[in-house]
C-alpha cells in the first residue's frame, strides 16, 4: 500500500482532500498527535520496519516519511 493510502485509511480522509508530499503532522485537522501515532504504527506494520525515536522526531512531512522508507529499503525512489 502506498504511504498516501495508509494515511488516508488511518485518518479517514477521502480523495477530496489533497495529500501532497509537503503535507505533514499538524497540517490537517485529522493529522493531530493521535493521528500521527496511528500513522507511524500503521507504516511500521505495513512495511515491517521500526522507525526510531530520532527518525520520528524528523518527520514533518510525507516526504520525510518516504525518505525513511527509502533508507530502510522499504520503498524505492
Amino acid at each position: 500500500m502506498k504511504v498516501e493510502d495508509i494515511i488516508r485509511e488511518v485518518l479517514y480522509i477521502d480523495e477530496t482532500t489533497e495529500l501532497s508530499d509537503d503535507i505533514g503532522p499538524g497540517q490537517l485537522e485529522a493529522w493531530d498527535s493521535l493521528g500521527h501515532v496511528n500513522i507511524i504504527t500503521a507504516i511500521e506494520d505495513e512495511y515491517d520496519i521500526e522507525i526510531s525515536p530520532e527518525e520520528i522526531g524528523e518527520i514533518n512531512s510525507i516526504t520525510e516519511i518516504k525518505k525513511i522508507l527509502i533508507k530502510k529499503g522499504a520503498i524505492t525512489e
Partner: peptide
C-alpha cells in the same frame, strides 16, 4: 503519545 513516539528514550 510521547511514549509511542519516543519509545523508551
Amino acid at each position: 503519545i510521547v511514549k509511542k513516539l519516543m519509545k523508551r528514550t
